[in-house]
Amino acid sequence: MRGSDPTGDGLVTITQMSRLQVSFSLPERDLPLLRATLSHPEDKRRVRVVTGPDDQTSAEAELTFIDSSVDASTGTILAKAALKTNDEVWPGQYVRVELTLGKHPEAAAVPLVALQTGHSGSHVFVVRPGDIVEMRQVEPLTTNQDEAIITEGLTPGERVVIEGHARLRHGSLIVESALAPAPQAQGSRTADAGPVRQ
């Protein structure tokens, strides 16, 4: 109520200060990871709310809500997290949210061009000793413009084929060269499967 209003008809704004919530949006492609995180109590707590220009001030939060529909105009989905304490955040303040969408310590990152799709699902061509390729079924977790994250079927450090897939079959012999391939060999380029960057 405004103290200078003699009629007593002034407006009062009531703001909930306890258990503040932070609203944020994520790309639609992250929806499966977001739902998996919400279904595991230990993962729901992996939300960090960062405030201040130096990003040094942060507060912990817990994922509590995922909207039931995707915003078609932006391709994003609304999510909310409840702060554990309100010491560092003020209602209406703009903050940055860091959300850990699960942990996969055995996951491998490969160039996106290495991931192929066939009748039996996703696969990569893994280079075995003797430059023989093995067509390996894999389980991709997510992809972006440059790489695919593989959670099953591939180990960091293994070599995968990134060029020349059309000529390959399970058991093919490859020659890692940009020159013309030798008889009974397939010219291909390879890359190492690396650990997932944190």
Rank of each mutant, 00 (worst) to 15 (best):
G10M: 09
G3M: 12
H119E: 08
R45I: 04
T85F: 06
L99Q: 15
M17G: 14
L63S: 15
S69L: 04
H170Y: 07
L78R: 07
R189G: 11
V49W: 08
Q93W: 01
P140D: 04
T76A: 08
D30L: 03
K84L: 00
L101E: 07
A185H: 02
E60C: 04
P181N: 13
P195V: 09
R189P: 12
S120N: 10
A61F: 05
T74K: 12
G92W: 01
P91D: 08
A81I: 02
L83S: 05
E62F: 02
G153W: 02
A185E: 01
I77A: 08
N144P: 00
L173V: 03
L99M: 14
I132E: 07
I66T: 15
A166V: 15
K80M: 01
S23F: 01
R96L: 09
A178E: 08
R159P: 03
H40Y: 07
P181E: 13
S120A: 07
L78M: 03
T117V: 08
W90D: 03
R169P: 05
P27C: 05
Q21A: 12
T15N: 13
R128N: 02
A59G: 12
A81V: 03
V70S: 15
F125N: 15
G121V: 10
V49S: 11
H119V: 08
T7P: 12
R136D: 12
W90P: 00
E147G: 05
H40M: 08
G52P: 10
L112G: 09
T51I: 05
G92L: 02
E98M: 13
V95L: 01
T76M: 05
R159C: 03
G171H: 14
V126S: 11
L112T: 10
Q145A: 01
N144A: 00
A36C: 04
V22H: 07
V133A: 07
G157T: 04
T155Y: 06
S188T: 13
R48M: 13
S4R: 15
G187Y: 10
P129C: 05
E158T: 10
L168F: 11
A36R: 12
L38T: 00
H123F: 14
H119R: 10
T15W: 11
Q93A: 03
N144E: 00
E163Q: 13
Q145P: 00
A59R: 11
L78T: 06
M1W: 03
T7Q: 15
V49E: 04
Q116E: 02
P91Q: 07
S23R: 07
T37I: 06
P183V: 09
D54V: 01
V49Y: 11
E139D: 09
A180C: 02
S4Y: 10
D9Q: 15
K84T: 00
V50P: 13
A191R: 14
I14R: 12
A178V: 09
T51F: 01
E163D: 13
T51S: 10
Q93R: 00
E158M: 10
E106H: 12
S68E: 09
R2M: 11
A191Y: 14
R136Y: 05
S188E: 12
D43L: 08
A81Q: 02
S39M: 10
T37W: 04
P129G: 07
M17L: 14
L63N: 15
G8C: 14
H104Y: 14
E98S: 14
D131L: 02
D192K: 15
L112C: 05
